[in-house]
């Protein structure tokens, strides 16, 4: 239990420096620049410097803020972001911190707590831009949570379970075979529309571009974390990257088979299975973990890639898109999935 918590916590916390590097260097490369490449090979140690800078900066609260909520807000943002990972199996179904019966519902309920931290930060900062940013974030997160929830209803109907472990196990089966290549029963093949809806609304939930209206540096300076500096600001950043990781983990768990092997991995596992149960178990667990990490990493890169490609939405466009496009599509998706299940196709 504690081992699993340790693995997940270390993994999630080390995501931040890695993503700091990927974000800076990736953004530079996508924009024909080079990015920080001086400290360490290819600038790999740059994020160490970034973290050191955050630690040694003066932890200062401006005079006009509400001190209690001001210092509470970063924690309220970070803790739910970290907690969400508890129900996600990361290397085989044994490796799950809490195998709750509510599963995915727990994820959504905890993830939506994060918005309280953002509202708290905006309100306690006593600054009009912060408040506007947090107002936007509350409106945005509430409207996109609907789509987020509805987009996986189809999957729940197909897999007959809300437990993520069951869902991943079910995705290990073969959907159909073409010429010897088995197409696995991954969520994306069963629910392509649901996948796109979930992807878009998870972008909105993690406040990433093109949905980063709460931060919107062009019009709101920095939004809800405007008055924050040093480690408190770093906590907001950590929360953003952790919720990105959780969103990527959910995307790969629900739609890309979670810890199920990537194509080719079962062959590697077959090489090492020499009858010794312990070795086989160890190798398969390791390969499951690596598959999961690779899936998460590619989604993380996708997040960065999209961030440096798309411009931000206008607020009315955001609301129109959420309520008039995504929500009806999600409802339609649920209806069609139900119809197909009733007809016995799925």
């Amino acid at each position: 239990m504690f081992l699993k918590i340790g693995i997940v916590l270390v993994g999630l916390l080390s995501v931040t420096p890695i993503m700091l590097f990927v974000e800076r260097r990736g953004s530079a490369l996508l924009q024909n620049r080079l990015g920080p490449n001086r400290f360490g090979p290819q600038g790999l140690l740059q994020s160490v410097l970034d973290v050191l800078k955050f630690i040694f900066k003066e932890d200062r609260a401006p005079g006009h803020v509400n001190k209690f909520y001001f210092s509470l807000a970063p924690l309220v943002v970070v803790v739910p972001a970290l907690m969400t990972f508890a129900v996600i199996p990361f290397a085989g179904n044994d490796f799950i911190i809490a195998n709750l019966d509510v599963g995915i519902l727990y994820c959504f309920s905890i993830a939506s707590l994060g918005v309280y931290g953002i509202i708290m930060a905006g309100w306690a900062s006593n600054n009009k831009y912060s408040l506007l940013g947090s107002l936007r974030s509350s409106a945005q997160m509430i409207s996109y949570e609907l789509t987020l929830g509805l987009s996986i209803v189809g999957l729940i109907m197909i897999f007959q379970s809300v437990k993520l472990g069951d869902m991943v196990s079910a995705q290990g089966e073969t959907l159909f075979s073409i010429g010897g290549i088995d197409v696995p029963k991954w969520g994306i093949f069963l629910q392509p529309v649901g996948f796109i809806l979930f992807l878009v609304s998870s972008f909105a939930e993690t406040n990433r571009l093109p949905f980063d209206l709460p931060e919107g540096e062009a019009e709101l300076i920095a939004g809800y974390h405007l008055e924050y500096g040093s480690m408190r600001f770093a906590l907001f950043m950590l929360a953003e990257f952790v919720s990105m990781t959780v969103a990527s983990a959910l995307l790969s768990t629900l739609f890309f088979g979670g810890w199920q092997y990537l194509p080719g991995f079962s062959w590697i596992a077959h090489l090492f299975s020499d009858g010794n149960i312990a070795v086989t178990y160890l190798v398969s667990t390791l390969l499951h973990g690596i598959s999961f990490v690779i899936k998460i990493a590619s989604f993380m890169w996708f997040f960065v890639w999209v961030r440096w490609t798309l411009p931000r939405f206008r607020f009315d466009q955001l609301m129109n898109f959420g309520w008039k496009v995504l929500l009806p599509l999600a409802l339609l998706n649920v209806f069609v999935t139900g119809l197909l299940i009733y007809l016995g196709v799925l």
């Binding site: 530079a28 490369l29 996508l30 080079l34 999209v306 440096w308 490609t309 798309l310």
Partner: peptide
């Protein structure tokens, strides 16, 4: 927006892989 988004993503990826660095 989907098709347009994919086109845009391809443009940035092309820049990342093949374009000359301005730095």
């Amino acid at each position: 927006y989907l098709v347009e988004i994919i086109k845009g993503l391809m443009i940035t990826m092309r820049n990342m892989l093949f374009a000359k660095r301005a730095t």
